[in-house]
Write a protein that binds this DNA or RNA. Structure first.
Lengths: 187, 187, 187, 187
DNA sequence: AATGAATGAGGATTCATTCAT
DNA sequence: TATGAATGAATCCTCATTCAT
């Protein structure tokens, strides 16, 4: 009844990518096998290699999607800055909300880093993502500071997922404000 | 006390752990299977389960070794502070040397984080490591700052392994000095 | 007459056959799959079954081409016999040049034989080829000898491709001359 | 009932080799897959790679067995020469019986040649076999003739399996006797 | 205490072929 | 007529783990 025969399925590629991301988040990249992803996306195993000739192609596409989505959120939060608000508050918000509500994406990022430190293709993927993020930050902050802000954010978010202590927003705010002293703000 | 070690091949356990770490660094945690590790350590496959009943036990032991070694280095650098030197310079040094010379350990850490975000056992392992590191930092810096310093370091080292840009020690120093303003230094 | 050939890509069928032969020579008959041949001939996979409904049809066509080409060369060498030359020299020449310069065709023949000993269709293909070859030999040699000459040639060429020893033309000549004593020559 | 659990099975390796040869003879080397051989030998699929880490190792072992067995028969026939018998008769016998009764081995040889012309490992296997065969022939015939005798035999046997014509023992005898003129006989 | 042998499940791919467009 | 997409079966091989010795 659930479509033993399937003629065409235009969103199949997307479904596979979504399913892959879910599985990576749940069981790590090694858990996103052709088999498990095919089952989760309700796609015959034999058709997987048509869309992604190699398992690596599939993972790469999935992580590219992750990077695109994450950056979009990042950029949106930095873009909608109301008149008169201190942009550093947005950085604080990014760190805290990421630490709190985006567990899945955090897990996926950790997995991506583990691949990236060993494989150029994933490294390049992150580099592209990083550059876009820094571009977004440069709307409000000077270019020389932007890489450091990004690194601080990375470290804080990562540790927040490891640590048992609750998130202390004041501590985050203090760190961000120290790293970006007032006169650094562009606008 | 020495009861755990076999008489015929007393360093076997150690050899296995070293081989496991090498293989994880080269091919990721999934690449360190009983088989590959046994071959690399020149140990019969059938004897692996004697030393590590489960593959996970082996990985855990390997990462524990990593944490111990890393922390020892970390602590040593912070301990040997000559009279009159600014301890923040030691933090700068930690970041830069880690970024430059310890590629293997950085790769292993990334792998460990990827496991930790999904599995408590690895998370607890990192927590222990993190606590010891913070203890070392508290020799010189106030307790409220120490977690942030650690996070900044983490982010900077991680990004240095992804980025193509050369390490800019001045940028690092500026970040560290801003995060830890002079009056914060204990001694 | 030209009705079988497509207008848009008139040599496609030929290109496929050539690509198939190359792939068989390089990786054996099992290596000449629809996919590999399509890629090598730069033809869309989906169009393969139009030209050759079955993979076996494709292989058969390829080997037929091999037989035709090989026999043409064989026949040409035996046909152009200058007045007064001993035709046995031509047999020697056939063996030696085949052993030396026609590696690809030798490899293909071996593959064809492996198929032929189990499958009638390939066996019939070789029979046709063998009969034509014997016809060519009968220009110069009596019918009762012709099968034996052919067999000797086959064995010598085959062994020359296996053996590490260099080709000894004198040894070949002696064998041929003994097998075909002078009075056997027709002309 | 047929032994779901099997503790030890000392002849497993031999059984696998026998099954592999049968399957190669029936369906060609590509038909002797781990799966088909495991089923034919009544061995769990997962244990195949313990005995033969690579499918190629399995095939090589099977063909080595073929070569050993074939040469043993070859050598036996040439060894038991009664006083006063012309050894050339033994060569005739070898060719004829091989052509007639040893279909399976002939098929296997053809398959082996197809592998050998492309792969050194199989080529070396045949070289070893060829050298032993020539050693056997040198009991009765001069060294310079022995390679040619072997080649003639090879070609005649091969063609006999392709041709539709019945085996003509007189034709074979004539060929052998011409190739080995009486004074060549050693004893 | 130590290990060679075994095993069933699952790994990534490749395949010949079909079919809707 | 031509082909991109699809599919189920099969490919080789690896795996963690068990167990008899």
């Amino acid at each position: 009844m659930t479509g033993r025969v399937r003629r065409s399925d235009p969103h199949r590629r997307e479904r596979i990518i979504e399913a892959a991301l879910d599985l990576i988040a749940q069981h790590g990249a090694p858990g996103a096998t052709y088999r498990t992803v095919a089952a989760a996306a309700d796609v015959p195993l034999g058709s997987m290699t048509y869309h992604f000739p190699t398992r690596d192609d599939m993972l790469l596409a999935a992580f590219q999607r992750l990077a695109d989505d994450q950056w979009a959120r990042f950029d949106r939060i930095l873009a909608e800055l109301p008149e008169g608000e201190d942009p550093r508050e947005r950085v604080v918000q990014l760190i805290v909300t990421h630490g709190e509500g985006y567990g899945r994406d955090m897990i996926l990022s950790a997995e991506l880093y583990a691949l990236a430190v060993r494989d150029v293709r994933y490294r390049e993927l992150i580099q592209g993502w990083m550059n876009r993020s820094r571009g977004s930050l440069e709307r409000h902050f000077p270019a020389e500071l932007v890489a450091t802000i990004d690194a601080l954010q990375e470290g804080l978010v990562l540790h927040s997922h490891i640590s048992t202590e609750p998130f202390d927003i004041e501590r985050i705010r203090q760190a961000v404000y120290r790293l970006i002293p007032e006169p650094s703000i562009l606008r």
